[in-house]
Design a binder for these strands. Sequence first.
DNA 1: TTGTAAGCGTTATCAG
DNA 2: CTGATAACGCTTACAA
Lengths: 335, 335
Amino acid sequence: MAKVGMKDIAAEAGVSIATVSHAFRNPDRVSDGTRRKVLAAARRVGYTPNRLGASLRTARSGNIVVIIPDVADSHNARLIVGIERIAHEKGYSVLLGNTRGSAAREREFAAMARSRQADGIILMSHRLPFDAAGADELPPLVNGCEFTGHEGIPCVAIDDRAAGADATRHLLALGHREIAVITGDMASTSSRKRLEGFRAAVAEAGLAVGDDRIVFADYTTESGAEATRELLLHRDRPTAIFCFSDEIAIGCMHALRGQGFAVPRDMSVIGIDDIEFARYANPPLTTVAQPTEEIGARCARILFDIMDGERPGQWVHILPHELVVRESTAPPPEP
Amino acid sequence: MAKVGMKDIAAEAGVSIATVSHAFRNPDRVSDGTRRKVLAAARRVGYTPNRLGASLRTARSGNIVVIIPDVADSHNARLIVGIERIAHEKGYSVLLGNTRGSAAREREFAAMARSRQADGIILMSHRLPFDAAGADELPPLVNGCEFTGHEGIPCVAIDDRAAGADATRHLLALGHREIAVITGDMASTSSRKRLEGFRAAVAEAGLAVGDDRIVFADYTTESGAEATRELLLHRDRPTAIFCFSDEIAIGCMHALRGQGFAVPRDMSVIGIDDIEFARYANPPLTTVAQPTEEIGARCARILFDIMDGERPGQWVHILPHELVVRESTAPPPEP
DNA sequence: TTGTAAGCGTTATCAG
DNA sequence: CTGATAACGCTTACAA
């Protein structure tokens, strides 16, 4: 029982190979009897369609590729779950493009569209992985979370600027005046927007931030811990730390404990994302929640719309974020 | 610049299409000059090979599919990272088969091998997703973490029984006599083996465990929290809880705090996996570390060996686990 | 309603 | 060293 193809079932059923194909794809273009005959024969010979053949012919692979820095990151993983759910509904499979932040890998995975291994791309990066940015010659593409800022490429994300401002205002309302921030890579659009929001909120409160209050991490827990230790070296310490992701925040709280600071008594910490572990942290982490899985799902839906030939009505899709106050933030300690 | 194929570059270079193909795949079977000419022409016309065509012809898709319950689970995500790394090295792409534990989805994804969308399968499940288990007619397949227990299917995992025993002995050595366990689904082979190890270690210490000391979860954090609350309902409480995953353990510690228990003063907690957040937990979680990423990588290597026609030398590959003592375990409280 | 036949883009065999 | 040419398995006008 090596390879069974449509020809085998055609022979078995005593019909032409075209009829077999029709019986599967256009069931109503074939007589009821023949269809049953074909289906039965197919079962008898143990047929499984070879999708490569179909794909070659129809020029549709049935795959989409998601280009993302790190599947092991909680937020990213959740985006993927959202994407996968919709893709599965639509009968598509998802190819994993784990880039570890490498631009080269981003291009490599993006090339899968050109080479017909994928019909569309969901891009979780701030840069476009194409040499020629001829926007009209791009494959179906949607940009998630990280604006590339290219007109003509749909993007779905939260309003990062507002999210940054909201988190900051929460701290401000609590009475904090010395707020530090641990950002992600500044190449990241969302990091920059969050920082804008932070600055705006601080300015709005009539305060000033020294740039030594802003320290960099790369969205990982470990880097968050390191950045925190760096922050604590300064002579005048902040009373609150705004971390640009929950992973950073969890690393931050860990480092704080290591240096003998109690959260939130000695120092408040707030994150962004609302990953699952945020609520299980000790203390439970105050954060700005993103509808992560929904962002992924939305990306996928838009992508499929584009692949179906629809012209998207809008380029940027903003999903709602929400401040979730838990127990890692409190008023600053008495001086 | 619609579709450029080898025929276009053949025309441009003034050679036959066969020569073009050779220039790419068997560079030494073509004169140095022609090869350069072809390569130049290819660049000029903007050629990208269509892998569907090649795949159809060679009957190799260049993809492997990984069938896994939930990408958002930290341990699973890390397995995938390991797999992806090796696959990428080998020039393969990975298709994501997120099953949410559904046997139907497992079969669905496994079918991608039959339909030629994937050349091999990495299966993170305890059951075989095939109707006919004709072991000789199976596609290249390796089983990770969860023994299906089928002879002839390579499996890589830690020694779950020993891991379970080691964790238990750690608790025992600390002086605990009342140990509860929160297992994963008992359909899972690894859960069963860990439980075996637990029972063996307890028996070895001359103790007995009532079955009301064993409670079930599904490897998620939330279920770990629930299971813990259930456990605390009993009149005689344990002094230590052995959780069969770190996610469970983190949920457990959360629930414990919620009920006013301090870890490890009032109750010790130990997990399995050593996910990243284990060390960032408060208190840092004592756990039995799995070489998770390496397990994934090993699965992939074995799979590629099989796909290369090698007959695996052994069916079960045990990777070393290691007890990592952090701060969530301590001697039981004085009575 | 069913069959014939022409590809889809690539690889591989076999002559020149 | 190079070039016809026949597959690979399927879809799809078009014809019968």
